[in-house]
Design a protein around this nucleic acid. Sequence first.
DNA 1: TCCTCAGCTATTGTATACATAACGTATTCA
DNA 2: TGAATACGTTATGTATACAATAGCTGAGGA
Lengths: 250, 250
Amino acid sequence: MAEREVDRSISQTVKAQLALRDQILSGALRPGERISELQAVETTGASRTPVRMALVRLEEEGLLEAIPSGGFMVKAFSERDISDSIELRGTLEGLAARFAAERGVSTRELEPLKECLAAIDELLRQVPISVDAFSSYVTLNARFHAQLTELSRSPPLIRQIDRASALPFASPSGFVMAQSALPEAQQILIIAQEHHRVVIDAIENREGARAEAVMREHARLAVRNLRLALRNRTHLDLLPALALIKTATD
Amino acid sequence: MAEREVDRSISQTVKAQLALRDQILSGALRPGERISELQAVETTGASRTPVRMALVRLEEEGLLEAIPSGGFMVKAFSERDISDSIELRGTLEGLAARFAAERGVSTRELEPLKECLAAIDELLRQVPISVDAFSSYVTLNARFHAQLTELSRSPPLIRQIDRASALPFASPSGFVMAQSALPEAQQILIIAQEHHRVVIDAIENREGARAEAVMREHARLAVRNLRLALRNRTHLDLLPALALIKTATD
DNA sequence: TCCTCAGCTATTGTATACATAACGTATTCA
DNA sequence: TGAATACGTTATGTATACAATAGCTGAGGA
């Protein structure tokens, strides 16, 4: 019988949570499928207690759904669920931008955002954009959004935005991945970058309403592009998280 | 030694969660105070495993905060955290109202909201409002908001609003309780009722922007009144949830 | 052949034992 | 006298054993 090998460098709960999330997002566990604790114990290497903790956390995260009779299943999402999640996130980011503008942000605090902006400008100069550069873009874009959120200086709002981003297609990188499936990807990224520029400007000039409006428009752009991308499904292997869409309602 | 008495009518996890939440909101556990698992086991009657599950859920709910070195403590909120939570919720409800208006709602679906509206009208006819009537108002108001949220027909949004309401002062009844601490309470409730009337009208006429705007204004009214109420602390025993405010930052 | 019931199996819910890490205290040395 | 270290105590993190329930399978009767 195999000795249980324990990786002491990280908590078993976190390890199990990461492993299970990965299985869900990679599509190894299909939407609607019940997650067996015993099976999860085998695949994650943790014992039942941390696995159960991880399952509870993933349920709260929105990736799992509790089964009334006990246990959990992988949650399934409709296309509208996804676009609503994106719009929801855009609304919250809009509020964050407004808070940042109204509450005042020093030039020094805006510096990291401007650095992101410049770095993305640099990437977009390539036509067409390379795969590596696109990968960098995803990272930079996520960082931009995270930093913008921080500028609101509102812990409850930051927390809520984090929660709203748990669904991968509702996260900033999910936005970008979805858009990347379109032939007009580069043009879209340039428009998105313009939004980024406007929101910084609005915050700098303390125009709360304008800052909020542009972030909401930013999300609506993503929603439109996601819909388009879902029409031509050819490139959707770029976005493994879409394994969560329930095929029955396609 | 005492036999552990197990109440089989309800899961131990849920029992522990309810008991602990109650202890937190009643102020029995003070903000910043560490929650001892062993102590929780004694006060809730459940064993450590369900207690731990309950602690994880309460952390995700936002009432507890994980301590890096292990364990949990009762989260403390600043006054701004509270007003931000209210505005956050209003923003989400605004989105829900807009969705309802844009996606179309049948007259039949609006019926329950109109019933709430009429019932509240009836209550407000009393001047001054009795304690019993006020208690009914809190219930009816919460129902109105819950039904409005449902009309968005967006599970991700409904879920997020529920999560945003986990903080008791951010819930519709929390709004009302906070406002009730003011001498002008009745006048405020009348204004709030006017908001309710407008949002129904806007949804009925498919005016998404107007529906959204009025819900946000609704929340901003609550924020202003909460601030006022926090100034004259005399009536704040009406809102035990405010035990969560960290006194250090008053 | 289909429906029903009983028993079994598999899985989750709960309890507790064990391991490990953190914190506090006391003692010693500078 | 103060600071630092070592030891002990207490709490959390993890693993596993036990209990109970839900779902499934097979057999029997209509």
